[in-house]
């Protein structure tokens, strides 16, 4: 069975279980809430997906995100930029995210440092730099446009039960970005090079693909996505707290891996990642409805990560068995 199918089944079963316990689960309001809490995570996850497919791992993205989001707000205030503009802080954050991604690229493509170590190191460096040079205090009066954007709803009405149902306008750009990343991965030479890299570095080099060039693009793109995610996080939260997002690696990496991306590289789809993010959010937002205390959320996500990787290992060994059976039948039929 395909990974995506398994995940869809898991989502359906989990929904039915929660739905049977609490009727408010199957409401439009709850669905939109899950979507809203998935936007930022999905952006991070798309960056992580590309990195994981290429055979790497990135643990610096949460700090890249908050660094970009927080710094963009600080710059807006310090230089008294137009607070009415939504575009300026977003562009600022994307540029900062790309620059930080560039640092990762230098460490990984330039110096050949293993990706986990490189991003672990840069995460520490970025965090230290932000807290000492940019600032360490909580900012609650973020620029007006960012603040207002948090309630920019596409659909907004009061349901019959009296709860407020709102769907954030972000659903449109995030959908476009998701489709775009999917097309990049499946239809461009860069995208296929990412898969090739995950399949093997030496064969990729022999194909004439620039390994360093591809890695550089990967980490720049991941940085840009993290920067955008960071500023949107600040906007949706209506505050810029430099201590936020730390620790969210677990949720995102778990979502990407559950979505079928192979931690060994070479495999992974955008659709799977979207499902993975939705699933993780479904669990996190609704465990409470099942009477499970929220302190168990992290444990649950951690367990899912381990389960996801175990499933990968099992399907890998199945594939090997099938291959053995296959090579035998080939010989049989040729005789």
């Amino acid at each position: 069975m395909r990974n995506e199918t398994v995940l869809i089944l898991a989502i359906v079963i989990f929904s039915l279980v929660i739905g049977s316990k609490s009727p408010e689960f199957f409401t439009l309001a709850n669905l939109f809430d899950i979507l809203r809490s998935s936007f930022v995570q999905l952006l991070f996850a798309l960056g992580v997906l590309i990195v994981i497919i290429s055979g790497g791992i990135d643990v610096s993205f949460p700090i890249v995100g908050i660094f970009a989001g927080y710094t963009a707000v600080v710059i807006m205030q310090k230089f008294e930029l137009d607070g009415e503009s939504l575009l300026i802080p977003i562009v600022l954050a994307i540029v900062i995210g790309t620059l930080l991604g560039g640092v990762n690229a230098i460490a990984i493509a330039g110096f050949g440092i293993p990706t986990l170590i490189a991003t672990l190191g840069t995460a520490g460096i970025f965090r230290g730099l932000m807290l000492t040079l940019i600032g360490s205090s909580f900012i609650s009066d973020i620029p007006i446009a960012l603040d207002q954007f948090s309630t920019a709803d596409l659909v907004k009405f009061e349901s019959a039960a009296g709860t407020l149902v709102r769907l954030h306008v972000l659903v449109i750009p995030i959908t476009i970005i998701t489709i775009l990343i999917s097309l990049i991965l499946s239809r461009t030479l860069f995208g296929r090079s990412v898969y090739a890299l995950g399949g093997g570095v030496e064969p990729t080099r022999r194909l004439g693909i620039s390994v360093k060039g591809t890695q550089t693009k990967i980490y720049l793109l991941a940085g840009a996505l993290s920067g955008l995610a960071g500023i949107l996080y600040v906007s949706l939260q209506r505050k810029a707290n430099p201590y936020d997002l730390a620790g969210s690696e677990l949720d995102i990496i778990a979502a990407v891996v559950l979505g079928g991306a192979s931690i060994m590289g070479g495999y992974g789809t955008v659709f799977g990642t979207v499902l993975g993010v939705l699933f993780i959010n479904l669990i996190k937002n609704n465990l409470v409805l099942l009477g499970v205390s929220s302190s168990w959320q992290r444990a649950a996500v951690g367990a899912l990560l381990v389960i996801g990787i175990t499933l990968q290992a099992i399907s890998e060994s199945r594939r090997n068995k099938r291959r053995r059976a296959l090579s035998e039948s080939e010989v049989d039929s040729s005789e």
């Binding site: 030479l189 898969y195 090739a196 399949g199 064969p203 022999r206």
Partner: peptide
């Protein structure tokens, strides 16, 4: 080469066509 330098995670079609695309420097792959 003895190890063929093929990519196990891609399809047969892609393994054959990818180098051609690289040689032609095509940005997009149908």
């Amino acid at each position: 080469f003895q190890d063929f330098s093929l990519l196990p995670n891609l399809t047969v079609a892609e393994n054959i066509a990818l180098p051609t695309n690289i040689l032609k420097s095509s940005k997009f792959i149908g």
